[in-house]
């Protein structure tokens, strides 16, 4: 599904190198966790996957279903089936949430050769997905993310993910800012999306989320490199001993 090969990336503006040779592969249906201390490059990795222009890939490649996506813009990557749930979803005044969902869903359907959804069908799908996430439909009448609480924003991200049905979901610190009830609802939402042909990459600082979303594999990112890979027990080990031990090993 996803293969990251010796990926080097830097901040376009000042040339600071953040990713220094990341190697990682995710199989279809796999739930992968990427953990690491602050500043290890986790968020940068998620942005580089989504195609944010603020970062420049200087070396290596990202293969999605066997094809390089480096030359694709963010919209093309999304249409190909890649979804990034943002750590800090942006508030966009003036763009109504429903209108945005309609445009986004139909843009992706069009790119995948499907017919556009008519309003009643679209509303039905949105209502069903919102119900499952315990979201109030009145929220969707507001401008996109404007005035949403931190937890509401994260739910709105998962709502979009459910509606857009991506092949690869990247969740960037989705647990931050969530209380325990919201964490359960969001985790249930993610788990419900699991299928043999959909992969999920969960980026997180803490083990907490992984109690609810149980990963098949865990990778530790440090200073822009994967320094250790393992199974779910690796996350528990990190929770107990912290990153210090591992970091010492790597250095």
């Amino acid at each position: 599904m996803l293969e990251i090969k010796n990926l080097h990336a830097r901040i376009a503006e000042d040339g600071t190198e953040i990713l220094r040779g990341v190697n990682l592969s995710v199989k279809p249906g796999e739930m992968t966790a990427i953990m690491g201390p602050n500043g290890s490059g986790k968020s940068t990795l998620s942005y580089v996957l989504a195609g944010r222009e603020d970062y420049e890939v200087t070396e290596g490649d990202i293969l999605f279903n066997g094809e390089s996506i480096l030359e694709m813009d963010p919209a093309e990557r999304a249409a190909a089936g890649l979804f990034l749930a943002f750590q800090y979803p942006m508030e966009i005044p003036g763009v109504a949430t429903m209108e945005f969902l309609k445009v986004a869903m139909n843009a992706q359907r069009k790119a995948r050769g499907l017919d556009e959804l008519k309003i009643p069908e679209l509303m039905k799908r949105v209502r069903a997905a919102a119900d499952e996430l315990d979201m109030d439909m009145s929220m969707l009448k507001r401008p996109l993310n404007v005035g949403f609480s931190g937890g509401e924003k994260k739910r709105a991200e998962i709502l979009q993910m459910k509606l857009l049905e991506p092949a690869l979901c990247v969740l960037d610190e989705t647990d931050s800012g969530l209380d325990i009830d919201a964490l359960k609802i969001v985790s249930d939402g993610v788990n419900a999306l699991r299928s043999p042909d959909r992969s999920v990459v969960v980026i997180t600082h803490y083990q907490r989320l992984l109690d609810y979303i149980v990963p098949d594999s865990v990778h530790v990112l440090y200073k822009g490199r994967v320094i250790k890979s393992g199974e779910k027990e690796l996350a528990q080990e990190l929770e107990k001993n912290g990153y210090a031990g591992l970091v010492g090993e790597a250095a």
């Binding site: 222009e53 603020d54 963010p74 999304a78 943002f86 942006m90 945005f100 843009a107």
Partner: peptide, 25 residues
């Protein structure tokens, strides 16, 4: 640019995304 990236990351092509943002304005 942040807003543009967010909309595009949902599969909305650049021209349409710009249109949405200008219209919102």
């Amino acid at each position: 640019q942040d807003h543009l990236f967010y909309l595009m990351a949902r599969g909305i092509d650049e021209k349409t995304a710009r249109g949405l943002l200008v219209k919102a304005f």
